[in-house]
Every structure is written in C-alpha cells, then in structure tokens.
Design a binder for these strands. Structure first.
Lengths: 339, 339
DNA sequence: TTTAGCACTCCTTTTCTAACAGTGCTAATC
DNA sequence: GATTAGCACTGTTAGAAAAGGAGTGCTAAA
C-alpha cells in the first residue's frame, strides 16, 4: 500500500460516500492524472487486497467492509464542522438553560437533522444508582403515589390504588423505615434487601404488611425496569438513504430501531471507553447493513452513550468530528458544575 | 338501495378488505346465484351512486370513501371477537396488577399485534389536573429534584443544578408556601398564580428569590409541556399493508406518526364523546389514505383516547368490536375502584 | 329482469433489442 | 518497469413490442 494506492482507495471511498454509486476507473483519471487503464490496474490490486468489490463483472467498484475499516483507520481525516452546523449546536449550550440530558438529546436531534442519519442517546442507566429516598404522596383516600429517588437524581414514580384496609399512615411509616434502613443501597439490590431486611420488621409493626410490602416492591422494581431511557432521533431518516430502497429492508431496520434490547447493546462491549468507536456492518450486532459510530460520556456522575446509525457508506469524518465537538462541549460543562 | 344492492356493496367492501384486490363481477356470482352480467349492472348503479370506483376502465371495483362510509353506517356488523383474541386481552385485566394506563397501553399493543394496524393511546391530558403538591428533594449540595404532583396522580420531576448562593432550605420553604397557597389550582394556571400571588411573598422572605422563583416556574412549565403522553404501538405495521407499497408513501406516514401535534388531533373535534368514531380518509386531518377508529374513555377521573390507525381498507367490524370490548373491560374496572 | 355473447380497453408480463458503462487483457509506448 | 491505447467482452438498464388476461359495457335474446 504505497501512497498512490492509498489515495486511490481514499478517493473511491469518499466518492462512494458522496454519490452512493459504484466508482469507475474513468471517474478518477482527472484527479490523479493517470489513464483509466492505470487506475484499473490499481483497482485490481485493491480488489485482491479485499478493500473494494464489484457488484458484477462490469460495474464500478464499491468499498468492502474491510475497505471502510482501512479507510477509518488510515485514510480518514476529521472533517471541519461547517459554520452553520456549529452554530446550531452552540445554541444549545449557549443558553445553559437545558438540563444535561435534554441538551444531549437536542444535540443528537440536530445531528440527525443535518446529516440524515439516525441518532441514539442511551442515558441514565440505573447502574451505580443508590437509593436516596422513597416518599409516599397521598392523592386521595384511595390512591397514593410512591416516588423513588436515587443519589444521581433519577426519579421514578408509580401510582397505586389502595383498598380501605390499608392506612396511608402505615405506608408512610414503612417508607420511613425503608429510608432509614436502605438509603445508600444500590438500586438494583433494594428489592432483595427489602425482602430480607425490611419485611421482618414491618411484619411486626404493620397490619397489612404483605400488601404494603408489595407496593414498595413494585415501586422499586418499576424503577429498575423503567430506567433504560433510550432516545432516538431521526428514526425516519433511513427512508432517505438510497441503499435502503426496498420495503423489506426498511421494515427490518425500522423494527430494529424499535427493539430496545438491541439498541442497548450499542453501548456494550468496549475496552477503551474514552475513544469514539466505529462499528462497520458486521462489526456490530445491530445489523450487517449499517455503521454505528458511538461515543460514551461521563459527566457529573451521569453517564451514557451517544451514537449515530447510518449506512456503511456513512460520512465518517463528519460524524466523528460532530461527536467530538459535542463531547468537548459537554466536557466544558462538567467544569462549570464541578466547581 | 334495495336489499340486494346493499348486499352486493357489503360483499364488495368486505372482499376488498380481505384481499386488497379490486373485486370483479365474476367473484360475486356464486355468492348471489346471479350471472356476472347482472352483478355488473348492479355495480354500474353502485358506481353511479358513488359507492364504488374503478381504477381503470377494465378493472374490478374498489370501495370509495363514500362506500366505506355507507358500509360502516348501514351494512357493517360487529364482528365477534375470536377466543384467542379475547384470551389475550382478558389476561391483562385478569391479574388486576397493572396500573390503569399501563393496562390500556398493553391492550393497544395487543390490538396492534393481532390486527397489524397501528394503535395510539392519548392519555393523561394535563387538563383538569389541579396542583396537589410540589416537593423538593435534595440529591446533594448542588442538586435538587422538584417533584410536582396533581390530584389525578400525575407526577413529573425535574432536576436542577443549584449554585452555592442558594440554600436548599429556602427552596423547601418556598415549596411549603406554594403548597399552602396554590394547592387545588388548575395546573395550567399555576405558573401565572406563581408570578402574581407567590412571587411578592417570597420576595420578602427569600434572599435569592429570583432564582428560586425560576426553578419552580420551570418545574411547573415542564409539567404542562411534558404531559401530552402519547403511546404508539405497532408503528411499523404500516409496512405490512399492501396499499403502502412505495417508499415515499411509507415515509410520509411514518413521519406523521412521529408528529405529536398531529397525533393529538386524533382526540379532537367531537360531539358525542361516548360513541366510537370512525374517520375515513379525508374525514380526519391525519392523512387521506388512512382510516382512524377511536374511542374516548373516562375512568376514575383519568381520561384519554384510544385509536387504531390503518388503511381505509380496514377491518371495521373487528376493530369496533375490539375497542368496545376494551371499553367494557375498563368500565368494569371503574366499578371496582369506584366503591 | 336476467343472461349469454362479444368487442373493447387497459394492465401486466415477457421477450427482445440497443445503448451503455465499465472491466480485463494485450501489445505498444514512454 | 510503469503507463497507456485499443479492443473484446460482460452485465445492466431502458424501451419497444408482443402476448395474455381480467374485467368491463353493451346488445340482443331468453
């Protein structure tokens, strides 16, 4: 892989990213001041190396997954963010009004807008959250709301209908016991501790302790279950990508974007958390026909993942730059509040 | 419109609903023991009346919007729910464990599953909610969560980063003042009353009253804004309907399903709230190529709308029966808790 | 009132052709 | 040795032509 060959591969990848059409030898003549025959010879080598492919014997070349991989590792240059793009993103941070997670969501919506890809924000994992307190709020004599709050500021609430046999004061009393005993407990252990530590105690003090116990059990369980918090922006942008031009393909991808378990896997599996990671085609579990570019963030104890999903023919340089820019902005925000 | 003509129209509509293919005269011969020529004559009349249409001079007939309208008003029979469908729905109500809104969402998910249409639940409108209380929960010295709760059991929470200049006790004190003064106020008036009634008072008692005021203002505002609560199930079922067989059509519909303002209009505009309403094609603002069947519910003060969105060639009888069945089940639940 | 018969229309599918883009290879050239 | 012109070859695409079919409207007879 000498310099010229690298440049030809780079040109092929980038042209294909722009046009979505196979790249022929003639198209590159001018750029390199070479005849199409020479380009063809080089292309044959690149094909032997596995970096580009043909759809049929007389079609232009298309980058293979290996080709994209080589491109992002050796050839890609970070693209400068255009003024108008930067402006749109800056606005979000300028006012400082938005809460962190809202700001991140907004950012990714803008990225989806300007790039025509789909964005995912995976935030607020319930991992590493500890119980701060649970409160009981009485709506009326039949209904109460249990509000569970963690030390990272995640709050979930759940309403319960209670019968006449339960006294609200008993619920409040129980909540106080729980707060005294379990505050600081990792939220995913609370249910267990509730059973082991709290149940025996309220058994002695509360008449309908089974029912009361169940209410709190449900409230905590709901917290763990409802805490995945996925935000997807530009879901319908897949309709704009020429590679997804048949309905069964679109349907498959749309279904995958609705599959929360699958989306959550986007955040999984990594070694170097700080770096932007690129999954091309089969490299991710999501779908062989997409690329996922993702960045993890950790800010003021809140952690999460932002990712962009698009065709393998994705504008890698641009997305990497945009994600880096956002990360930078988020970092500066950490400094503000860290003080 | 004598009986035979009605029956022919009914047959045409129902056959088209099943097959999605234009209905020719021969297809009906057996059913009516008439020659195709006779059916053709009747069809010509039905076409003159505007109830059916041809795609081209020698195609079979397709119901027009007027035809569907006539069908649902005069010809349609409620379809008996099959055992397995009923079983699936009964399971939801049998346990009684699920909260009302969860149960409704689950129901509509099942309806989407078994029918291949898209379902919408519009619930928890913030209308007619009155402030019950606002609580301040301190996460740490820099962060607090404001929890707003209404008399209908709707709860929203919002986290705030506070600087050193604000004392948490001042926030708690302010929350107590608000609770004393504004409990029972319609939630959409709270912001206004906060400005007019509360602000002058805390101005005297609280040092950083501007900042404190803003926090509560934001918290209440967020409640109103974030209270639309739309739940869509079977969003991707549009991919399974043969009428939506081109990508631009799918894209248009997918975008509309993502447009919350548009979806909210599904609940608008009605006279007789109790009845199931059917909007065929242009009759709704949503899209000329769909039918929307909707039912409003009012249970224990919670109100909302459930709706099914599908092609105009929708299985009207089945959907109407299913929605009625759910409504019935919900009603029986009202009795339980109303006691 | 119903029906058999028939001409007619338009859609759909298939087949065929021509144009085209791009390749690989060979032999000549720099 | 690298580059290039030339050429045969291949697969795609677009369009035209042809064939088949489904279904209609109309007429005249039952």
């Amino acid at each position: 892989m000498d310099a010229r060959r690298n440049n030809i591969l780079k040109e092929i990848v980038e042209t294909f990213i722009k046009t979505a059409k196979p790249v022929g030898s003639k198209a590159l003549c001018d750029k390199f001041n070479l005849s199409s025959a020479t380009i063809r010879n080089e292309m044959a080598v690149l094909e032997d190396l596995g970096y580009i492919e043909k759809n049929h014997v007389s079609s232009g070349r298309v980058p293979s997954e290996e080709g994209y991989r080589y491109y992002v590792e050796h050839l890609m240059e970070a693209e400068k963010i255009t003024g108008s793009d930067m402006l749109k993103l800056q606005k979000i941070f300028a006012s400082g009004e938005l809460e962190l997670s809202d700001a991140i969501n907004k950012c990714m919506e803008i990225i989806s807008d300007i790039t025509n890809y789909t964005s995912v924000v995976l935030g607020k994992s319930s991992k590493d959250n500890n119980l701060l307190q649970v409160s009981i709020i009485a709506i009326n004599s039949n209904q109460v709301v249990a509000v569970v709050c963690t030390d990272k500021g995640n709050v979930e609430n759940k309403m319960f209908n209670i019968g006449d046999n339960i006294n609200i004061n008993e619920l409040i009393k129980t909540s106080e016991i729980i707060n005294k005993m379990l505050a600081g407990t990792p939220i995913d252990e609370v249910s267990m501790r509730l059973e082991v530590d709290v149940k025996p105690i309220i058994k002695r003090q509360i008449k309908q302790y089974e029912t009361v116990y169940n209410i709190f059990y449900d409230a905590f369980n709901d917290f763990v279950a409802g805490s995945s918090n996925i935000h997807i922006a530009g879901r319908n942008n897949i309709f704009n990508q020429p590679e997804y031009n048949d309905i069964s393909e679109l349907k498959r991808l749309a279904n995958k974007l609705d599959d929360e378990e699958l989306i959550e896997k986007v955040a999984e599996n990594d070694t170097d958390e700080k770096k932007i990671k690129i999954f091309i085609g089969d490299e991710s579990e999501f779908d062989p026909n997409v690329t996922i570019i993702r960045k993890k963030y950790h800010i003021n104890g809140e952690e999460g993942t932002i990712a962009v999903i698009g065709p393998k023919r994705m504008d890698y340089g641009r997305i990497v730059s945009l994600l880096e820019y956002i990360d930078e902005k988020l970092d500066s925000r950490k400094d503000e509040n860290g003080k």
